[in-house]
Every structure is written in structure tokens, then in C-alpha cells.
Design a protein around this nucleic acid. Sequence first.
RNA 1: GGUGCCGUGGCCAAGUGGUAAGGCAAGGGUCUGCAAAACCCUCAUUCCCCGGUUCAAAUCCGGGCGGCACCUCCA
Length: 487
Amino acid sequence: MIRLHDTRAKKKVEFQPREPGKVSMYVCGVTVYDLCHVGHARTAVAFDVIVRHLRARGFDVRFVRNITDVDDKIIRKGLAEGRPAAEVARSYADAMAADMDGLGVAPADVEPRATLHIAEMIDVIRRLEARELAYAAGGDVYYSVAGFPNYGGLSGQSPEELQAGARIEVGENKKSPLDFALWKAAKPGEPSWESPWGPGRPGWHIECSAMSHRYLGDTFDIHGGGSDLIFPHHENEIAQSEGAFGAFARYWMHSGMLNFGGEKMSKSLGNVVTIRRAAETHDLEALRLLLISVHYRSPAGFSIARDDAGQPVYPDLDEAEARLDYFYRTLERLDGFAGTLASPPTPPPSDLATRFVEAMDDDFNTAAGIGHLYDAFVLANKLLDDPKAAPKTERQSALTALARDARMVGTTLGIMRRPPAEFLNSRRARLCVQRKIDPQAVESSIAERAAARAAKNFQRADEIRAGLKQRGVELMDGPKGTAWRVV
RNA sequence: GGUGCCGUGGCCAAGUGGUAAGGCAAGGGUCUGCAAAACCCUCAUUCCCCGGUUCAAAUCCGGGCGGCACCUCCA
């Protein structure tokens, strides 16, 4: 049984899909007018993990995530850069796809773009007009909030309270401050489409009502997005969709914001770290691990510090990457020991699988789930370290089960999906470049040290160790020779 | 002003009635020629404060204090 926090109910509720075994889900994606930042990454990763877990639990999930490719900011950006808005949108949509891929965020089953669904939007607006929930005014069309008594139900606000703060901008033709644009009359130089109300373009909210209906129908299971979309975006979607089709999403899920220095990371505040920027210095899998180390609904922090040269550094990302390094190193050891086994099932040495699924079933508690993963890895290393702990066949069987369970966890969380050596080698190579370490020089130092050790010249050997250590190279002597890593 | 969220050890962070997960940092140890890695031990009688309910509260209720978000574009 899966429980999830429903924004409208304001509590955790039991999840009962509309059709047994099937989940239909719509999540608001981004407006593509710039590169995605780590805040966007958080929301994308959060819902990616939710979808992965639902699938792991056997649900047939149909997942829709839209792309908003027409709006004021895209148009403005196009004017500033001297290129068509459509081109701006396309280039940033491509950038987003690449960034999401880097983060291990799987593409949605459908990724509809607003500009390709104008006809559907017009259809929704006409339905609203027919029900007297929409009115045309000066080429614009507005939603009449007064006609929708449940307005405010999601965000917990009453129309009267909202009324107080709202106001009508100059140039708008609305009758009431709470009314919002469904269709905006074309202005010179802006992209526009033909409509029953004349040339224009859609308001922001209508695309989600139109596209969720097109791909998921009158009603569907889960609607998600960042918590900053609760009002007005999702409130307005409800008004539109319930107004036009009588029903809408059955559960509402919202992910928390990513804060930096106590403030929300956003372009208007200028404290943005793009996914691309993070990828320059870190493995994006580390960013992913960092993001899922906090429960998806809690506000999360992202620390930024300055190094001696005044360049920004990211301590949280460093730590997450070091943890990921531990995971992969342990996995590599497990593979080396357990890989040969073809044995009958043994009672699992840990209850990782059970505990992880339990944590995830309870509102997708990735933070608790990762805690269980640490427990399992400590146990794995312990078994690997101690040959006398149990007969070899039992240890192999237990460790094989552990490796299998760890990878199951990794599949749901979207981490540990590469062969360990691939991660470890690429990380070391990257750190070498960053620290200006020459791998060849390290190897020859190691050879020199090996010779010194063979000659029992431990003083020389320790000098070499210390010299490398100073440059951030750590040596690890083992039965198969000396390995090294950058710390 | 309205709405909602939050306040857990030096830092990060789980935990919505049953007696404080996990990670980082720190100290000690096992192992090692020395190290590193790995593992072990120590590290919150207590969960912002004050009341209340209860056999039992970090968890529920009331009141403070502090922080954040939304109410305008925002993942």
C-alpha cells in the first residue's frame, strides 16, 4: 500500500489509483527560456524517483510532463537575442533534455509542447465559454472566477482573501481582479495563432488543462509540480479543467523548493546555479544523490562557498560525490567477490530490500531509504573484510543478495547505474584535471616507491607517499599492488 | 494583512502517540612496515520556549519566539 501526501487534503492519504495497477500522472515541466538550474533539477528528480518507484511496485504508469514553449519571457529573450521566440524555446528545450539525461531523469512517456496544442486549448476555452465560465474582452479571453465556487480549494485560500491582494494591471480587460487570461490578443511582433477571438496566444495555465485532457482524459491520478505552482497555476488549472470537464486530478503532489542562503533559488534573485555549471566540476549523479537525500516535500539547501581564489565551490556536492564514491567502491568489491556465484537462494543477509520499499511506500521517503542503504553497505564491507565471519559459500550467497538489493535500490533512486569502474575512473580523471595532477607522474612515483619498498627502504617509500599526499593523491596498498585516488 | 510550511547533536537529515535512523565533522581503536580504505567504539536522558491532553508526546492541542514560501513570473 502506497501512501502519499496530497496537497489538497493537506495530509498523507492512501493512494488508490483510478484503475487497479495503472497510474496516470501529469507533472508541470519548465518554461524553456533559459538553462535549467539545480532547483529545476530537484523537482525533475523528485518526480522521476516517484515514477520509478511506482513502476518498481508494478504499476503501469503513464507519465506526461509538459514543456511550456510560449510565454512572455521567451518572447522577450527572443527580442533580446534577435532570434525568433520559437528558436529560443527549441534551443533551451534541447539543453534541458541534455541536462535531464545527465541527471538520469528518464524522459516522460509524453512531453507535449504548448505550441503544438493550440487547437486543444481553444477547445477548452470554448467549453468554458459555453458554461459561462469565460468571457471575451477586447481580443482577450478571461476565466470568470466568480463562476467557480470552489476556487481556492487547493491553496486553502478563499476568493475573498485573494481578492484583497489582487489588482488589475494596466492594459488588462478583466472584470474582476481574480480573473485570469485564457487567451491573450496578439501584440505586434509577437507570435500568434488564429482563434475564434482573433489572433493571439494562450495564457499560461490553459495548456496544462488542454494537454492533460488530451493525453490522460477527463480525470487522472496524480498531478505534480513544484510547490511554487500551487497558486495560482494549479488553482487555475483546477478551475479550468473542472469547469470544462467536470473532473480533474485525484491527487496533488508538490515538491519543496531548493534554497540557497535561506532564499529560494530563482533567476529574479540572481543566485542561480545551473545544472550545467554543476556538471563542470561534479558528477551529476552526485547532484542527484544530494537532491534525494532530503525528503521531496521539505525545503532543501544548496550550499555555496568560495575558495581561496574567490571561485564558487559547492561543499554539499563534494560530500555527496564522496558518498557516491563509497557506494561505487563497495559495489566494486561486491562484484569482485560475489560475481562468480550461482547458488541457491540464501536468506538475505540484510532487510535492505524490505526496509527500502517500506520507506518509499510511505510518501516516497528517499532520505530514510538512503539511510537503509548505508546500513547495508556497512554490513557488506564488514562481510568482505572478515573471511572468518562465515563459510565462503554463505558469504558469497549473502553478498550476492546484498549486491542485487543495492542495485534494486539504485534502480529506483536512479543512482549506481553505471559499472563501478566507469564512475571511479571518470571521477579520478576529472579530479586529476581539476587539481592539475599528472596520472603518468603518479604512476612512476608509485613504481619508484614499490622499488624502494622491495629494497626495504621504507624511509624513501614514505617520503614518496607523503609527497603525493600533499598533492591530494592517496595511495592504497593492497594484495594486487598499489592503487591510488584523488581526495 | 491572508494562506501554508518549518524549527531534531558542530553541520546535513529521517522520524505524525510508545520511549531519538542515517550521513558529514571530531576523538579513540582494529588492520597495516608506515599509511589509506574498510570496520568497531565514543559523540542529543533529549527534539526552539511555556503551558495542556495522555499510562505514554519530538510527534496531538493552546500560547509565545524564530525562519521560510506563496498571495506578481517562477520547479
